[in-house]
Nucleic acid binder design. Structure first.
Length: 363
DNA sequence: AATGCGGGGGC
DNA sequence: GCCCCAGCATT
């Protein structure tokens, strides 16, 4: 239990900071729960500056939940291309359909019902409940963890079950019931602009006098997080199969990375040696086509780093003399693939960054 | 409780 | 290079 005086000090100091540091954003002060929801999904694990243009494009294209519900999935993915965490887009779409058809377009308006929506966890439910409906649920995001860990000098590992519970209890005690939305906004703005991860602005901080981390000059020691895992290496030899002006792609169904994005068929390798000696001919070795196809040398090497994957890829162009049904040629490699024109490929389909990089240079 | 999902910006 | 960001779903 926090001392009541300390609660008042914290609130007053935070709101004083907020009144002197306005931070306009397209979704701020928004009362339409649809727009709040959309903005919050875009902003999950995403910097405001990065999400901002995506939100503006999305809200223009899909001004209400029905428009989003009726969008083709590939179109939504194209709008989401480059933003990452593509499950967000899939869940967004599923939830839009649910609200549009099952709820007649009416957004749920209790914390519990909002929380049941796909893609909506504790944080997002609290954000929608407080911003959209004035309900007193404290948000718990990276900013809030950091602010509270420093202010109260909490060394519990923050991204653990125990940590979540402890910080959540604290935040819930601090949030005022009269203007919970403004408090939540202020916490996140304060965390982004003043109590930042590196080099926080302590000299001008309105909470400085009561901040335990500042008192001991240990701002950089909070919050305490779990150690990171090593990245796994992944090697792809992408097969850019062309005939005439058409090229083969497929929609990625694997549940590991980039699910829902498109890609070229590929050969995958676990280790660098096998990858470096690999050739596109391997995909056609069991066929009688080798005499009829032209295969380019390997492209330069492309790399992309994900949160816990390091992807290395090269591309080889395979030119077919005439249309063939690739799916029957080598199902293990080409199953699910279809051909499309180059123009359509760039306009309609979303690709991971490593393929976008190749397309930009060579296609 | 642990794991995995993207991409970008700051240092 | 490393860290972190308006987190969530799955196992």
């Amino acid at each position: 239990m926090i001392q009541p005086e300390l609660v008042e000090i914290f609130r007053a100091g935070l709101l004083q900071w907020a009144s002197g540091n306005p931070r306009p954003m397209p979704w701020k002060g928004e009362k339409d729960p649809y727009k709040i929801w959309l903005s919050e999904i875009v902003l999950q694990q995403t910097r405001v500056e990065q999400g901002w243009p995506y939100y503006e494009k999305l809200i223009l294209k899909y001004p209400n939940v029905h428009a989003l519900a009726q969008a083709p999935e590939d179109e939504l993915f194209k709008y989401w291309e480059g933003l990452g965490y593509y499950n967000r887009a899939r869940n967004l779409h599923a939830t839009a359909k649910y609200i549009s058809t099952e709820l007649g377009g009416r957004f749920p308006h209790t914390y519990e019902t909002i929380r049941t929506l796909k893609g909506v966890g504790d944080y997002t439910a609290a954000a929608i409940a407080s911003f959209g409906f004035g309900l007193p649920y404290a948000v718990l995001d990276g900013n809030v963890f950091r602010i509270l860990a420093r202010f109260f000098a909490i060394d519990t590992v923050s991204d653990s079950t125990a940590g979540k519970k402890e910080f959540s209890t604290l935040a819930q005690q601090l949030i005022p019931h009269e203007a919970p939305g403004a408090f939540n906004q202020a916490m996140m703005d304060f965390g982004a602009l003043c109590c930042m991860p590196a080099q926080p602005q302590c000299p001008s901080c309105t909470l400085q006098n009561h901040c335990q981390a500042f008192k001991s000059k240990q701002q950089d020691s909070y919050p305490v997080r779990q150690p990171k895992k090593a990245k796994k290496q992944l090697y792809f030899l992408y097969l850019v199969v062309k005939s005439g002006d058409r090229v083969w792609i497929r929609k990625r169904q694997e549940k590991d990375i980039w699910r829902g994005l498109h890609e070229f068929p590929y050969l995958a390798f676990e280790d660098a040696a096998a990858f470096e000696s690999a050739q596109a001919t391997q995909a056609f070795s069991a066929t009688d086509m080798l005499a009829d196809i032209a295969i380019s040398p390997k492209s330069d090497t492309f790399r992309q780093t994900l949160t816990h994957r390091q992807v290395t890829a090269v591309f080889q162009e395979i030119r077919l003399p005439c249309d063939a049904n690739l799916e029957t040629v080598n199902p293990a490699c080409f199953s699910g693939s279809f051909s499309t024109s180059i123009v359509e490929l760039k306009k309609k389909f979303a690709f991971p960054g490593i393929i976008s990089g190749f397309l930009k240079k060579f296609v």
